[in-house]
């Protein structure tokens, strides 16, 4: 595959709109494509995707292939793999980029192994090595306790990119690019699974990934009540959302969908208030991009104080009500 050229981004669309992660990886892909002076293509796979193709051009793509088919409405890997195999054969890219989403982390390894290569998952940064024209991928390893730079000589190089790790371009409706349909005759005999149902577990109020302020609690809160009382009250005052580290989710104090961390949500709010959270590397992987981290913890040795900008050492039961009262007063 020595003649492979260009970069292929696999985008995701929900309700006719590009997901934010897709705009982010199109931004990252655009920068690599410009450095290589090659084309940036984008594949959108789904059903009833509206104007998402145009949005992908505005976000940086030179050519967008839209595989729009009722059978592709829900993600399922044996179905999507059929589209991806044809896509790779058609475009023959040197680099493939996906988002580190539920679908990207499922699809990228299967596609990579099918092509006889290995992907580099959950990358924070992608760069081109000028001498070899190969991509180098930086990612967190050992639960965030170290970082590593990976590369591979095998083509195509495949990477998934972490949410909020790269910045999208400012959307430019005047950008020129082609949007073309991509038809795939799906082979029913290769489809090994079917989606019976999609169950939404939406939390009321602002979504944690969209909130400018997040108030998160950990094991130190001792039970479910503080999440629905004190933390929810503070989140309301700050017009933000409530989050949690892993132990409260594992203990069923709060729904899994508000877990912040390496294997939960990766968020980057303006303000992240960590209450009773020790700050393991796994947890910090989910919130390290926050502009300002504030920690309240009774253990002065807690790792969270190495990561936070402001901290109070003390029992949250005493610190939080006083903090909240003062915040309320200041915001009035």
């Amino acid at each position: 595959m020595a003649d492979n050229k260009g970069i292929l981004v696999v985008g995701e669309v929900a309700e006719g709109k590009l997901l934010p992660i897709t705009a982010e990886i199109l931004g990252a892909g655009r920068r690599l494509a410009d450095e290589l002076k090659e084309q940036l293509s984008c594949f959108l796979i789904g059903a009833q995707m509206g104007d998402a193709g145009k949005a992908a051009v505005a976000a940086g793509a030179d050519k967008v292939y839209v595989a729009d088919d009722a059978q592709l409405k829900d993600y399922e890997n044996s179905t999507y793999m059929q589209v991806m195999e044809k896509a790779v054969a058609e475009v023959a890219p040197r680099i493939i980029i996906m988002g580190q989403t539920a679908n990207g982390r499922d699809l990228a390894p299967r596609l990579a192994f099918k092509l006889g290569v290995s992907a580099v998952m959950d990358c924070l940064e992608l760069a081109i090595d000028q001498a070899t024209r190969l991509m180098q991928c930086t990612r967190a390893v050992y639960g965030g306790n170290a970082k590593a730079i990976f590369t591979s000589e095998a083509v195509p190089q495949i990477a998934t990119v972490r949410t909020k790790a790269s910045s999208p371009l400012a959307p430019d409706a005047g950008r020129k690019g082609d949007v073309v349909p991509f038809a795939v005759a799906l082979d029913a005999s290769k489809i090994k699974a079917k989606v019976l149902q999609m169950v939404k577990e939406e939390v009321a109020g602002i979504k944690i990934e969209d909130a400018a302020a997040v108030v998160a609690g950990g094991r130190g809160l001792g039970g479910p009540e503080p999440f629905s009382k004190e933390l929810a009250d503070l989140a309301r005052i700050l017009k933000g959302a409530v989050g949690a580290s892993r132990p409260p989710c594992d203990n069923k104090w709060v729904p899994d969908s508000i877990q912040v961390g390496l294997t939960g949500k990766i968020i980057a709010p303006e303000l992240y208030i960590a209450v009773g959270i020790s700050g393991s590397s796994q947890h910090m992987s989910g919130c390290a991009g926050s502009k300002c981290i504030v920690a309240i913890n009774k253990d002065p040795e807690a790792n969270i104080f190495k990561e936070a900008r402001f901290g109070v050492v003390g029992d949250w039961k005493v610190v939080l009500p006083a903090f909240m009262a003062k915040v309320k007063e200041l915001l009035q």
Partner: peptide, 26 residues
């Protein structure tokens, strides 16, 4: 990390809010 200390944890909590305001975080 700017560890905010005061005579009591409650006072530290209030002081934290003030610090965040001064730094335009809230």
């Amino acid at each position: 990390c700017d560890i905010i200390s005061a005579d009591s944890p409650a006072e530290a909590g209030a002081l934290l809010a003030q610090k965040l305001r001064e730094n335009k975080v809230i």
